[in-house]
Write a protein that binds this DNA or RNA. Structure first.
Length: 112
DNA sequence: TCGCTGACGCATT
DNA sequence: GAATGCGCCAGCG
């Protein structure tokens, strides 16, 4: 790892943002990307999560609208749903209830 | 160096 | 509601 310096910073920014997500709350890739200073690079967030270190609350990151991107048959789908429910996040099928994903832009990232 | 791929987002059909 | 296409651009072979 060396040339990854530039993006490495972006990855850390993404991880930092993900860690900043309060328990019982979820955020979307696009929101995280934007908050990490990478607007429009939601895919980078996906990559960041893929290579994310253990301990990162990746399960708090869902697709736009609070939808889970994984197929229902996926093991991660079940795990993410399980973890979210364990934190008090309500889920309906493969989607997070609006209350949890409520205006992320308003509840979360409220910068004074 | 070039080209494909991709934990996505959004518009459209 | 589900499927498809296009865009954004950083990794990786």
């Amino acid at each position: 790892m060396q040339a990854t310096g530039t993006s490495h910073q972006a990855l850390q920014a993404i991880w930092k943002t993900v860690r900043a997500i309060p328990r019982g709350q979820v955020s979307s890739y696009g929101t995280v990307a934007k908050r990490a200073g990478l607007p429009g690079r939601a895919r980078l967030v996906g990559y960041a999560l893929k290579i994310a270190p253990s301990g990162l609350p990746w399960h708090r990151v869902v697709a736009a609208g609070g939808r889970i991107t994984f197929p229902k048959t996926s093991r991660q789908f079940a795990e993410q749903r399980k973890r979210l429910r364990a934190e008090g996040v309500e889920l309906t099928g493969g989607r997070v209830v609006s209350e949890a994903s409520i205006s992320l832009d308003e509840l979360l990232w409220k910068r004074p």
